[in-house]
Simulated scan of single mutants.
Amino acid sequence: MLTKKQLDLLEFIHKRLQRDGVPPSFDEMKVALDLRSKSGIHRLITALEERGFIRRLAHRARAIEILRLPESLGGGSEPQNAGTEAQGFSPTVIDGGQDRTPARTSARHSSAVELPVMGRIAAGVPIEAISQVSHQVTVPGGMISPNGQHFALEVKGDSMIEAGINNGDIVVIRETEAADDGDIVVALVEGHEATLKRYHREGSIIALEAANPAYETRRYPEEQVRIQGLLVGLIRTY
């Protein structure tokens, strides 16, 4: 039996994982639950882990995996990934081609798809924009929107570590030119530098916010920033 705060936190983490593909930071959890300190979040996380609803991944900042959901959130008694090994999968290969324009890959209903990795994206200061396929990566079909176009990027840097995004991770991006406040986006800055940051609009100014206190939020006139895609998933190799 979960307390209301435990249930509220589990629901918040679940929704953010579905939306962003990565869990919220402890600061975001604290604000969402209207708590005064992060110590309260640590206690709730520990309680959820002890009850078998979540698992914290060792040596990874803010890395949380949901194992199961209570019935009130649409889950059952079994872990969310139970039975997947027995079911197997039939991968559908999506041809990324050698087009220099990212995201020429249409999603299909399948258990796994291949996406073109377009090179590296900065999770730090912006780096030169990349637009050339380096290799392919297989991703779960559930990450892919049926009507969207997607591509993948390798993360370089640690500025998004508190959002659970580490150096060397592969991020799955849905192509879009629109974003809402708080979304993690691929932004093209001044036409030639690409970066992975959390998006905020401040009137006619676009703020690109890091998830690491060592990096400052960078602000640009809106005409200098073009959204290229929205984070929908993350692949990590251990």
Rank of each mutant, 00 (worst) to 15 (best):
R198P: 00
A103W: 00
L44S: 06
Q6P: 08
P221Q: 04
E71A: 15
I130G: 14
Q228F: 03
P79Q: 06
E222V: 05
E202Y: 10
L230W: 06
L17W: 12
H42T: 13
I144S: 09
G74K: 11
I45G: 04
A82P: 01
E11F: 07
S72K: 12
N147A: 14
G141R: 00
E65N: 12
D34A: 14
H150W: 00
G182S: 01
V185F: 00
P70S: 10
T195V: 06
G148A: 12
E193F: 12
A123T: 08
V117N: 05
A210P: 13
E65G: 04
G83N: 01
G21V: 02
I45H: 03
R62K: 14
G168S: 02
D8F: 06
R218S: 13
R198C: 04
V137H: 02
V185C: 05
Q18N: 15
N167F: 02
N147V: 11
F53V: 11
K5G: 00
I184F: 03
T176A: 10
R174F: 03
P91K: 05
Q224Y: 03
Q132Y: 05
A86D: 01
F53C: 12
A123M: 06
Q224C: 05
R68M: 14
A163Y: 05
T176G: 11
F53R: 11
V31Q: 14
P91D: 07
M29G: 08
A123F: 09
E216L: 14
M29V: 02
V171I: 15
V137M: 08
E128W: 11
G182V: 05
R236F: 12
P79A: 07
E49N: 09
A214G: 04
G157R: 11
I45D: 00
P213V: 10
I170R: 04
L2V: 00
Q132K: 12
P213R: 01
D99T: 07
F151T: 07
P70W: 11
A179L: 01
P146V: 05
I45S: 08
E49F: 01
L17E: 14
V139Q: 08
P213N: 10
S134N: 05
Q132R: 15
T46V: 09
N167R: 04
D169W: 06
E11N: 15
T237G: 11
D180A: 12
G88K: 03
F151A: 09
A163Q: 02
F151L: 02
A187E: 00
N147I: 13
E223F: 00
I227K: 02
V155K: 06
E28P: 02
A123L: 03
A107E: 00
L10Q: 07
H109Y: 04
A103M: 07
A214F: 04
R174M: 09
G83Y: 04
G168L: 10
D27C: 00
E222L: 00
S110W: 01
I170P: 06
K156N: 13
G75R: 10
F12V: 07
M118L: 14
V185R: 03
G88S: 05
I54K: 10
V172K: 09
A122H: 02
Q98C: 02
G119D: 03
F89S: 13
D183H: 04
T105C: 14
R201H: 08
P70H: 13
R218V: 11
L230T: 08
D183S: 10
G96T: 03
S159P: 09
T46Q: 15
E175R: 15
G191H: 04
M118I: 14
A152P: 07
